[in-house]
């Protein structure tokens, strides 16, 4: 090979590279993207669990929405008031507003001791798979299947299966709502954290049937309705449902329920305090 061959090769490759380099330089000028530095700051403040409870695809998407003023600064339910205040600081908003704390609650209390089983399930440990076989192993068609799809979905390790029923640890729960979507029986709901009373049943069948297969099933007797001084609990579809806008967590319904379906999570000491407050 002669020296001119090398020079030609260098010119061809170099020329092609130069042409593309110039084109890319022009393109980078035309397609320049302005990045908002607040997005990175907000992302750094957020919990980073990418749980999606704010309604956006992840913490990054939420941060972008906040910086673009499409989402409220207190939209992160996991980060609560502390994160809301920090984001408000970054965004230059004075008042972060209140974040209503919610928590996931399982609306079933039919554990192995109280609910009857149709068959013994020994397939793969997934609630969706189990629910396809005659609606699950429990005779109750709306009972917790107890295979732990919700606890597997929980990024905060807040759900455990106790004696065949999922139980949420209110302290660990960050209310991301991932468990709500995976439960094939739709038993998990996000309710206000300050209310300490909830119904452990969501069976829509009549009381006489519920009585046959679950000792802890709601039979729709309406004693709780009469006991409630705030008109906050009603029997709808044959089971009691609490209206948390009205409920003051007094716990009277839980005390009166003949089947122990309504759970009262309050410590006895706290209970007296709160009752006194309500009387005032």
């Amino acid at each position: 090979m002669s020296i001119s061959g090398i020079i030609i090769a260098v010119c061809v490759v170099g020329g092609t590279g130069l042409v593309f380099g110039i084109l890319l330089a022009v393109a980078s000028f035309v397609f320049a993207v302005k990045t908002d530095e607040r997005v990175e700051k907000i992302t750094a403040v957020l919990p980073g669990a990418n749980c999606g409870s704010c309604g956006y695809a992840g913490c990054g998407a939420f941060a972008e929405a906040v910086a673009g003023e499409r989402a409220p600064v207190n939209g992160c339910t996991v980060g609560k008031a502390k994160v809301a205040a920090e984001i408000a600081d970054i965004m230059g908003v004075k008042d972060a507003g209140d974040v209503e704390e919610v928590v996931a609650r399982v609306m079933c209390g039919g554990d192995r001791a109280s609910a009857l089983y149709k068959y013994e399930y020994s397939g793969i440990l997934d609630c969706k798979a189990a629910s396809k076989i005659a609606g699950g192993a429990k005779k109750c068609m709306s009972g917790c299947l107890g295979l732990g799809s919700c606890s597997a979905a929980c990024p905060f390790d807040a759900i455990s299966i106790v004696n065949g029923v999922a139980v949420v640890d209110s302290d660990k729960c960050q209310a991301c709502g991932k468990c709500v979507g995976v439960c094939p029986k739709a038993l998990i709901r996000l309710v206000p954290k300050k209310s300490k009373v909830w119904v452990l049943c969501s069976n829509p069948e009549q009381g006489k049937f519920v009585n046959q297969y679950c000792k802890k099933g709601c039979i729709g007797c309406k004693i709780c309705e009469k006991a409630c001084p705030f008109d906050a609990i009603h029997v709808v579809d044959n089971h009691a449902i609490i209206d948390y806008a009205k409920c003051k967590s007094c716990g009277l319904c839980a005390k009166k329920c003949p089947r122990g379906v309504i759970h009262n999570d309050r410590q006895p000491a706290q209970k007296q305090e709160n009752v006194q407050e309500e009387q005032v």
Binding site: L23, L24, A27, S28, F31, A32, V33
Partner: peptide, 9 residues
């Protein structure tokens, strides 16, 4: 590289 810039925008 060009496609990347275009998409980012």
């Amino acid at each position: 590289q060009f496609v990347e810039m275009f998409m980012k925008k």
